[in-house]
């Protein structure tokens, strides 16, 4: 495990938020590599190896997916559903990371077999702590399936 580089997929349309996540994870030296996608369509293309992502060498499967819910074109829940409906992709842990605390979103996410649902805290200290814990848990403690 430790010898293998950990790859994180970040699906987030807000560039500021993406930067916040990336910088925080970098500061904590958690992820070896973070791949950022700003819309659901692109993320799915990568995962399903479509368009420019056909080569498995350059487009390896991530160990964990951080997914925002409100995304342009293809919504986060649709991305989640596509992943969980796909035999090859369904075992990849998906963590929803969103500003939405709506009951409806939480329910629908779990209904679609999300592995974890995290709400972005408004205060940065909490945000930083969350990112740290998230990194430790999903990328440290958590045992990943073989993909």
């Amino acid at each position: 495990m430790m010898g293998e580089p950990v790859l994180v997929m970040l699906v987030e349309d807000n560039v500021d938020h993406a930067e916040l996540v990336i910088r925080t994870l970098e500061d904590h030296h958690i992820a070896n590599r973070i791949q950022h996608f700003s819309d659901g369509q692109a993320a799915l293309d990568y995962l399903l190896r479509r368009e420019q992502y056909t080569d498995p060498e350059t487009s390896p499967r991530p160990h964990v997916i951080l997914l925002d819910l409100r995304l342009p074109r293809v919504d986060g829940l649709e991305v989640l559903q596509a992943i969980k409906d796909n035999e090859e992709l369904k075992s990849i842990p998906v963590v929803v990371l969103t500003t939405s605390e709506a009951e409806r979103d939480v329910t629908r996410a779990y209904h679609n077999h999300v592995n974890s649902y995290l709400v972005k805290p408004v205060g940065f200290e909490e945000f930083s702590k969350l990112m740290n814990d998230l990194g430790f848990y999903w990328l440290g403690w958590n045992t990943h399936p073989r993909i």
Binding site: N14, D16, H17, L20, T99, K120, P121, V122, G123, F124, F127
Partner: peptide
Amino acid sequence: KSPLVTVNGFL
């Protein structure tokens, strides 16, 4: 909420 997260983070 999104801009607030941004503001706090970059602060």
